[in-house]
Design a protein around this nucleic acid. Structure first.
Lengths: 245, 245
DNA sequence: AATAATAACTGGTAATGACCACATAACAAC
DNA sequence: GTTGTTATGTGGTCATTACCAGTTATTATT
């Protein structure tokens, strides 16, 4: 990709500069813990103002690629810290990132009136209908998790089985077909034991330990749009988290 | 607290303004989803420049208190979204937040040469010695977790049992006594089954499901300073996470 | 009353300029 | 060779100014 900022491009200059620096980091231009050019050097080199440079650098810092030290410089984060902050991803995205081929078996997809607990989580009045999608998630053809999503749809919105197969990910369907952009989520993780039904679906013994993940997802306007329960086979799933202080 | 920016204060103006706005939000000056004064209004009201206002607002947005919509305004986030991004906290802090009184039984605290795996995680050469602290963590007097920490200390640094009791938290000891500031961490969560020894310590049956949390903590200079394994009783611990996109 | 055009208000991007605070390098004095 | 001072380079804070892009309110036209 280009090493230069296109001053006539609609893409903001700070973003272009951030992308350039990110590429250079990815390509090993600077080793971890090595300093990158100073703000004033970048200002001269790319012919942008120092606030614009600082905005690009702050953006990369936010993503974890670099860190800054007052009076000393700006440094490349050690490789393992060069990861995005904990981000909201779909199950499919999670597995792809781990190098596992995700696939799914759609057990059912229909409109239901869920429990009061779920309606409460979704901030919906009683007797509201939502789309319930039950799926077995597989990684490299092996069952990994059992997932039940409750999606809040508008009156003129619908998701069907073809959508899920075609787009590959529920979040992608929401974004591209419905203009619902999953933005934030709250999750809980806890241990549970497989019921006979769950055991059958996940190909484990009844009573086997499972990891229960419940997630409430909000859209770009902070409105709850999905409540999902995922039961992971305890032996096949490791949840990875990145924390900051 | 003051409603005004002290222009002679050493505390940055953007930070003072952010604190003022945060207090007003906390005190219900604006309801969730209600707009706060525009950037230009705040500029006039507090006699600071618009870039300074924007920096304060960006800070609050980062913390989750507000969200912005291009061309529309700046709004207070719904209450439940007004939470700090997922942050690195100690076990004690976690429980206090949940309204549970944390306490601990220190099983052992001594210098050891840990396994190669742990040395690798801590980026230490072979045969390095670290401080190993084994504790049973209790919430409201009930065993919740078994925690084994491997802490990297400098040659002139030491932590003993009195330190842990006196400061109440390992992170507090590190910060206040050793000037080691835990800043970032990577965690994994997975399900495991209690060995007979673990079962005894946690007062569960052997083979009971446990939640295994492994965390590698970095200090302010991104150096690994602690590797910790925590086994939680599956029936008494729920892990809560906040995600963004 | 409905519709289109315009104005006003909102957040977003960018430059110029100045100064503060921290860290390090260079230099002078002993 | 050591120590203290000064200079330089670094990131951090702040103000002023201008313009862009999105949204909403107001006004004009039909």
């Amino acid at each position: 990709m280009s090493r230069f900022i296109n001053h006539n491009n609609a893409i903001p200059k700070y973003f272009q500069l951030a992308s350039i620096l990110k590429s250079q980091i990815d390509e090993g231009e600077w080793k971890p813990r090595q300093s990158i050019p100073s703000e004033r050097q970048l200002e001269l080199q790319y012919k942008v103002s120092r606030p614009t440079v600082r905005q690009a650098i702050e953006y990369l810092e936010k993503l974890g690629y670099i860190y800054r030290e007052h009076g000393r410089g700006t440094f490349v984060s050690p490789q393992k810290l060069q990861k995005k902050m904990l981000e909201l991803t779909s199950f499919s995205e999670d597995l792809l990132r781990k190098g596992i081929q995700p696939s799914q078996i759609i057990c059912s997809i229909n409109h239901v009136v869920p429990s009061e607990k779920i309606l409460s989580r979704l901030e919906l009045p009683l007797e509201s209908s939502v789309l319930r999608i039950e799926r077995i998630r597989l990684g490299d053809e092996i069952p990994i998790g059992l997932q039940i999503s409750y999606v809040v749809l508008g009156d003129d919105q619908q998701i069907d089985e073809d959508d899920l197969q075609q787009y590959g990910s529920l979040y992608r369907v929401m974004e591209e077909k419905l203009n619902i952009i999953p933005t934030e989520a709250d999750e809980t993780l806890e241990v549970t034991l497989a019921t006979p039904e769950e055991a059958t679906l996940l190909q484990v013994k009844a009573g086997a330990p499972l990891l229960l993940n419940e997630r409430l997802t909000y859209d770009q306007n902070r409105k709850p749009v999905e409540f999902v329960k995922i039961l992971y086979r305890g032996d096949r799933y490791q949840y990875i988290i990145r924390l900051t202080r």
